[in-house]
Write a protein that binds this DNA or RNA. Sequence first.
DNA 1: ATCGGAACAG
DNA 2: CTGTTCCGAT
Length: 469
Amino acid sequence: MDCNCVSDLLIPPVPALWTPGQSHHQARARGIAFPDWAYKPESSPGSRQIQLWHFILELLQKEEYNGIIAWQGEYGEFVIKDPDEVARLWGARKCKPHMNYDKLSRALRYYYNKRILHKTKGKRFTYKFNFSKVVLVNYPILDMANSPFFLAQNHFNGSTSTPDCSPEAIQSLFPRLPDSGRGTSLFDRTTAAPGPEGDKLRLDSFPFLSTGAPCYTKPPSLLGPYARNPPFDYPWGFNPYLPGAFSLNNCPKLPPGSLYPSQFYPNPLQSSLSQLPHPFSSLLPTAEAGERGTTGGTNGTAGGQPIRLCLPPYPGSLSLGRMDIGASLLAERERERAEANPPGTGGVSLGLGAGLQSPSERRGGLKQDPESDSDLEITDLSDCSSDNDNDHVFRKGPSLASRSQIVLDGKKGSVLPPVSSLPPTVSPHPLKSLKPVSPRPVSRPLSLSPPLPPHEKHRETETLKMIHS
DNA sequence: ATCGGAACAG
DNA sequence: CTGTTCCGAT
């Protein structure tokens, strides 16, 4: 039969900035950008093929699909509005024509034990992601505990009302990064940048940068309509990890000194990352800037966008204190199999005092899963807004002048010297990472597959060529 | 609607 | 290992 597997080779075009369902309503959802690498099949150890959760994330990330699946409810929670359609898309992606929601949901259920996902009881077709889990799964090697992101997050969580310290501050720490991956064409599209074609950068190689820290998109109110969106004016030499670079001062809770532990640079990867710009930048809206409210979406998005995930707001609760998240995650991991810990257990905080202990020790009181299914340890972090409120922070250097031109693999890693030191871990196959989904709207009124504007297409092609070489 | 066991595929 | 396919039980 004919399946749409090809879609795997296509690149989604438009960046999908999460849009709060056009809504002004309720707690507006803030989108969080899920790190690119999270969407890459390669990032899923053990599986060469796209995984269901990746796929879900992809759909969630694109507003075109908001009619069938969308973030809703608590942070990380999403609802499958049209189970059959989602199943159909999944089936198309996997070339399983007989896929249906029953089967898809079975696969989803397997995630419960893995703690990647869990069901939101009481709400139909509603599930919730445990992002930290996802992160861990993808990048277990990272010592996220030491990441400023996480640290910030912890604090962030601690106080609900301190949004300040959080997202924005952190965000300001990183320069914008063009997107990545698969998409490769990200910036281009936007283009806004009249000229520089060289804005291609592949962050795939720096998964870590993305850090797993999904970032929130600013609520509409905060975001300008993309007023300014300089592709990125941060000097590549900027090292976000340098103390000086951070201006988390606004973050009262962050203990000085704890931000950049030496362990922060455990490996080459990390060091190289330090020169990378901020990945979240790709969140910048582009074409669809103007229109966002339609759920049915129609923007022309089709191709090359990297993946960006948008989540609904809520930093729920990271229950970890500032302890080491990594440890807790590990603990969780173990716990995972040990106890299927039914949700609903009390104990909100994951042992603040736990600190880094061996996974086996953690047992002590770590119990999370505050209530129901919210054991989600959120890893969100910064506000990845598209607007650069904090640009000024970085604005200083040679701005545009030094735009990077990193291309990918093999080609030239011009601007990022350390590229060579990057671990081969990620994205071995550029092409592969290029395209995640392109569910074609086989049936469905929704504009599942908007046409790609000519120029974009062109760009895309170019990009591909580049990658190829 | 959900769940999870079991067999099976790649 | 990650589903896919069936399916009986809630």
